[in-house]
Every structure is written in structure tokens, then in C-alpha cells.
Simulated scan of single mutants.
Amino acid sequence: ASLYEDMKAVEREYDLHCGLQQLFTQADGCAASAYRADSGYDFALLAADGASVYVSGLQAQLAAALCGQTGRFFTAFAGGQAVCDTRVNVTAEDTTVQLHLRDTDFQPLGAYNEDWQALLCTELQQAFSALTADDAADFFHLQFWHVNLWGPGSALPVPRLEILFE
């Protein structure tokens, strides 16, 4: 009972839903939130015929947004030097994913004076590259959209992330 209450509290705090419906609807892989007592939540990318991937921190927040399971980032970045709180929306055109960040608030956690937007963009690009590195498991359905545009058998280009602050 306490685990369930902890998970519900995490869902409220991070504006996240658990995504368990994917466990029953995705044949080749699914994505679901995974609870951790020390970090609040991780994200599990579960492949049907391959190794599962567990991510945390900014990667977990990005994976949740790419799967449509959250509309908000609230995460530390830059080695824990700052926190970003922003509303997030995702659109995609073929294999270019557009990440729309709105009402973004950066909170430094020390006496640092950095270009927080540039640091966040760098870490988001790295997280996206890591999440999409294995084309055998298409957790974000980029292959599905590409095949719909260009037909079966068309070569999938390397996915791209475009970050838009609005």
C-alpha cells in the first residue's frame, strides 16, 4: 500500500502517468515509469526481444515526454548545478522530433552564473542520442511514422531532436 501511495505522489509531483496500458498494447516494446526510492522515478524501456533499458534523471524525463506520459520537466541538470521546471510538448515530422518548452524556469542551486539554456539543450541532445541509439527497439515509434511517409523498406535516417523555447 505504501509503494502505491509513493508512486501516486510521484505522479502528482512530476505530472506523470504510469503508462502501464503500453504493457498490453505494444508488441515490440513499451515504456513505463519505474519507481525508485532515492530519485523519485526512473523510466523503463522494455523491449520484447532485447535488453531492457532503465534511465533516470533528465533521460527519464525526456523518455516520458517522448512517450506522451508527461507534459512537464522538473529535473536537475548540469551536474546538479541547476533545476529546470518547464511545460513540455512533443511534435514529430518524420524522424525529426520537436521538443517545445514553455514557461521555462531555471533555478541555480549555487552561486553559478552559466548559460542554463545552452547547458540544458546540450544534455537533452545527449539524452536523445542515448535513447534512440538502438534502432532495434523503436520505443518512440519513429520507424512507424517514417514508414507511413516513405513506405516499407525505406532506410530510417538518424533521428534528430530540435529544441524550441516558447
Rank of each mutant, 00 (worst) to 15 (best):
residue 66 L to F: 00
residue 125 Q to C: 02
residue 71 G to P: 00
residue 81 Q to M: 06
residue 152 P to C: 06
residue 48 A to R: 03
residue 116 W to G: 06
residue 49 D to S: 00
residue 37 A to Y: 10
residue 70 T to C: 02
residue 76 A to G: 09
residue 43 F to L: 06
residue 144 F to E: 13
residue 95 T to S: 12
residue 128 F to M: 06
residue 127 A to N: 12
residue 21 Q to M: 09
residue 101 L to R: 02
residue 59 Q to E: 15
residue 82 A to I: 08
residue 104 T to N: 05
residue 108 P to A: 02
residue 117 Q to T: 09
residue 42 D to K: 06
residue 22 Q to V: 08
residue 121 C to Y: 06
residue 110 G to Q: 00
residue 107 Q to F: 10
residue 122 T to A: 12
residue 103 D to G: 04
residue 121 C to A: 15
residue 19 G to Y: 08
residue 46 L to H: 04
residue 112 Y to L: 04
residue 45 L to P: 09
residue 64 A to Y: 04
residue 75 T to E: 07
residue 59 Q to A: 11
residue 48 A to T: 02
residue 81 Q to H: 05
residue 65 A to V: 02
residue 117 Q to K: 10
residue 133 A to C: 01
residue 79 G to R: 03
residue 63 A to Y: 13
residue 110 G to K: 00
residue 23 L to N: 13
residue 148 N to E: 14
residue 41 Y to F: 14
residue 139 F to Y: 15
residue 80 G to M: 00
residue 76 A to F: 15
residue 71 G to D: 07
residue 90 V to W: 01
residue 21 Q to P: 08
residue 129 S to L: 14
residue 36 R to G: 13
residue 113 N to M: 07
residue 143 Q to C: 08
residue 50 G to C: 11
residue 90 V to K: 05
residue 96 T to S: 11
residue 147 V to E: 14
residue 55 V to F: 01
residue 61 Q to Y: 05
residue 153 G to I: 07
residue 93 E to C: 01
residue 140 F to Q: 06
